[in-house]
């Protein structure tokens, strides 16, 4: 085990040229993730669907040069700087993924850190047989599943709407939107509570699939790999999940 502090050196993973050393905003990842979103159809929402910048699933195919799998192989070989690179690249995605599971930013950070700890612990047995992100999200979904099970009794559905109005980056969403009236703020909070509640009430795999598809912008194929399902099963899983959400959230549409 290397004794140097982690994160000490600025890291550039090999001589790739394609992947970004650091993901600061959605744009960086968008450009790095070729193709998949290049043909926004005319039907696509105008909204910034990539706003979370969590396009984590879309690059780093197999173990090619500059891929994340290749970076992970360097971690395996003892390069802690390479590990730092992966942390910087995916911590945002992991925190947001865990936030929508744990629903508290402190717990989300803990869980996200646990993901990286597991990545690091498992480095010696890492095989680049799958995309790095598939492996990463498997670890994350396992943790999310365990967390949900362990805390199920602590989170009765009707408490969900009452907590942490200012959980997002320390400021209330209300403030960010200018100065909504009190009623607007209440409605907004109700909407948000309903969204959380409905998503979190989905059957486990549907919920995980929605988190990865809607919020991490992963495609069917990759979600299927993470969940060890067929692509068509994943597709129908997501279809049913979105149907449920559409129907249950209808009053807010």
């Amino acid at each position: 085990m290397a004794s140097e502090p982690f994160f000490s050196k600025p890291v550039v993973p090999s001589e790739q040229g394609t992947s970004q050393p650091k993901i600061e905003g959605p744009e960086a990842q968008l450009s790095a993730s070729s193709g998949v979103v290049s043909h926004m159809s005319s039907l696509a929402v105008e909204r910034d669907v990539l706003g979370m910048g969590a396009m984590a699933g879309l690059n780093g195919e197999a173990a090619g040069p500059g891929s994340d799998a290749e970076v992970m192989l360097r971690v395996k070989a003892g390069d802690d700087g390479a590990f730092d690179y992966l942390v910087q690249k995916y911590r945002r995605a992991m925190v947001s993924f865990m936030y929508r599971t744990a629903h508290s930013s402190a717990i989300a950070e803990d869980l996200a850190q646990e993901v990286f700890l597991r990545v690091y612990r498992s480095r010696e047995t890492y095989e680049a047989s799958a995309k790095f992100t598939t492996w990463l999200y498997r670890i994350a979904t396992n943790l999310a599943v365990n967390y949900t099970r362990d805390t199920r009794h602590e989170r009765p559905e009707n408490t969900v709407s009452l907590d942490e109005p200012d959980e997002n980056s320390g400021q209330t969403p209300d403030v960010a939107d200018g100065t909504p009236t009190a009623e607007e703020a209440i409605l907004q909070r109700e909407r948000l509570a309903a969204i959380r509640q409905r998503v979190q009430a989905l059957p486990e795999r549907q919920r995980l699939a929605v988190l990865m598809h809607k919020y991490q912008h992963m495609d069917y194929r990759q979600i299927a790999e993470v969940l060890k399902l067929s692509e068509s099963a994943t597709k129908s899983l997501l279809f049913r999940a979105y149907e449920t959400l559409r129907v249950q959230l209808k009053e807010f549409l």
Binding site: S105, N168, L253
Partner: peptide, 24 residues
Amino acid sequence: RQTMVLLDEWAAPEPSPYFDVRLR
């Protein structure tokens, strides 16, 4: 489409400044 837009309201926080420190 409206459902997707609605789901966007559920924003997640950025990693805190302590994330790296804590992980380290």
